[in-house]
Design a protein around this nucleic acid. Structure first.
Lengths: 328, 328
DNA sequence: TTGTACGCGTTATCAT
DNA sequence: ATGATAACGCGTACAA
């Protein structure tokens, strides 16, 4: 079934069929009706490749993340897919992995499909190769970064102010009387750097213990966190609260602390389902993904309609207080 | 940059350029070299839509699931994407949501993009509208169902034998001396039915308590499970072990049980990260997603090469024993 | 209101 | 080994 077949069956030209197909301009009600009928009868579907060739678009957005199996990325992609779906856009998914210097390959892969835009979710572009390629991509297509940002023409950032969020947490801990806040993180993405900065600022502002031993970069695994925390306690490194860049780290830390017979406030980040699965439930800083993703898609549609958009939007984080925040 | 530009710059015809582009047939080493050089210089990339139009394929696979933000689906999609990526196929993602009678819309959406095949991850097609459309899809494109199956021409199933897995679990509990095993589940997908059947068979085989109050369908939420389990205990419904269709349910159940001052073996399903975040860590039945997904992609490539493939493949499940299995 | 004809960038089938 | 040219199916400017 092509547009020619439909045209023939209706005794009209393909132009007319194309017109009703695209709801454009004036077509007599009668012919329109007939064409619609035949299209339905024949179950006609325009060929997307031909259409793409003519319009230079197949209404597809490339969405890139490091790893969909991570709940943070998964949630974001779920949200973005559903929002895009509402306005008839498809998502082509790309998972880069956490390695450096290989992300550009995935961008390339998406660009080869002529996606109309690229949405990147919290993925670091530190390696020169990756970064250069990304900037080249931006010359051809808009790039929207969710919870990450790189200042460059045609790259837009929609981020959560986790820095303030984190620094506020430290403030609350200080109010509670905590003096030494342990910070555990696993990677320095844009978001990761924000949180670390927030932690440091919080510590400085509230004149808390600045012991460098209290800042630990570790792997994102329960075993590693537990081991690290236990070791710190065994080595008598004093701390009376824990903040982490990730719920999983907070969970591991909490487990280790309880096992060592201690107790103190613990705060994670990302407010994932994991946080609620731990006992006691983990207090967590929510980066408001739902808002970020909605705004990302909103911004995209504005861009497509040549409207003006801000290059950077910042939304506040929100703390979800749960049991782990209560000093026992 | 089109194939014409490249041809012109090289003083050859587009046919020759196309030949080197597709590595086909014989081209003199010299011209080939020159063409490759110019292509690199000009950063030439063939237009995917034009190519799609000619070949009637853009090497894209539609992948459908209910909800990527669910860790089971997320893991599956992550695996499938990476396997497909290795052989240069793109993933178009579709998330249907858990509603019935709307999934066909999403299939339609994918089919409109002329994907070469569809992979469906554990998504139920109970509603007639959905099912009929799915069967129609199968007339045009191969459909591969991961952890689900519908017997039909051109639909292939790659499933995990969770029925046996579940029934074996009940057996192990019986060996431990348990008499009344509570079963909690949240949905009757293909996989969900398998597990329920496995549970019933296990109960029957080992002559355990068949009290219908021990089979509870509930919402997938921590609050609901906790409430349900507490109510059962308060109503003096006796049970001495819990099995659930989902890790999350097991976690909620465990929490309620501990809070009520009891203790017993608890087993979840899907072996997600959640299971490890609970304390005690939840024993879980792993449906071997990695194997299923790898085989799904393998099967797909065979299909594309017109090789014979089985319509259904079944792999065994695997129990990961953790703390929650130890009767305290 | 409707039709004609061309362009979109490939691949593939013929010739040469 | 290479070139000319016909599909592929659609959108659209222009003509009627």
């Amino acid at each position: 079934m092509t547009i020619y077949d439909i045209a023939e069956k209706c005794g009209v030209s393909i132009a007319t069929v194309s017109r009703v197909l695209n709801g454009s301009s004036r077509v007599s009600a009668k012919t329109k009706e007939k064409i619609l009928l035949v299209m339905k009868e024949q179950n006609y579907q325009p060929n997307p490749f031909a259409r793409g060739l003519g319009l230079n678009s197949m209404k597809m957005i490339g969405v890139l993340c490091e790893d969909v199996s991570d709940s943070f990325y998964a949630t974001a992609i779920s949200l973005i897919e559903s929002y895009l779906r509402l306005i008839d856009w498809n998502v082509i998914l790309g998972c880069t992995g956490r390695g450096s210097g290989l992300k550009y390959k995935h961008l390339q892969f998406l660009m080869e499909k002529h996606v109309d835009a690229i949405i990147i979710i919290g993925t670091p572009f530190n390696h020169t190769k990756d970064l250069d390629y990304l900037k080249n991509v931006a010359k051809k297509r808009p790039v929207i970064m969710v919870n990450s940002y790189i200042k460059h023409n045609n790259i837009y950032g929609i981020i959560c102010d986790e820095e303030t969020g984190m620094s506020d947490i430290v403030g609350k801990l200080a109010e509670k009387g905590c003096k030494s806040v342990l910070y555990l993180y696993d990677s320095l993405t844009y978001s990761g750097r924000q949180k670390l900065t927030g932690y440091k600022k919080g510590i400085a502002t509230h004149k808390l213990d600045e012991n460098p031993l209290l800042q630990n970069k570790i792997n994102r695994s329960l075993e590693d966190v537990e081991q690290t925390v236990k070791k710190l306690i065994e080595q008598n490194v004093y701390f009376d609260a824990v903040v982490t860049s990730e719920d999983l780290l907070a969970i591991g830390a909490q487990r280790a602390i309880l096992q060592m017979g201690k107790n103190m406030p613990i705060v994670g980040c990302n407010n994932s389902l994991l946080a609620q699965c731990a006992t006691p439930m983990i207090t967590s800083l929510d980066n408001q993904l739902e808002i970020l993703c909605r705004e990302a898609v909103e911004l995209l549609t504005k861009l497509m309609n040549d409207k003006e958009v801000p290059s950077k939007m910042i939304f506040p984080a929100k703390l979800y207080q749960r049991e782990s925040f209560i000093y026992a």
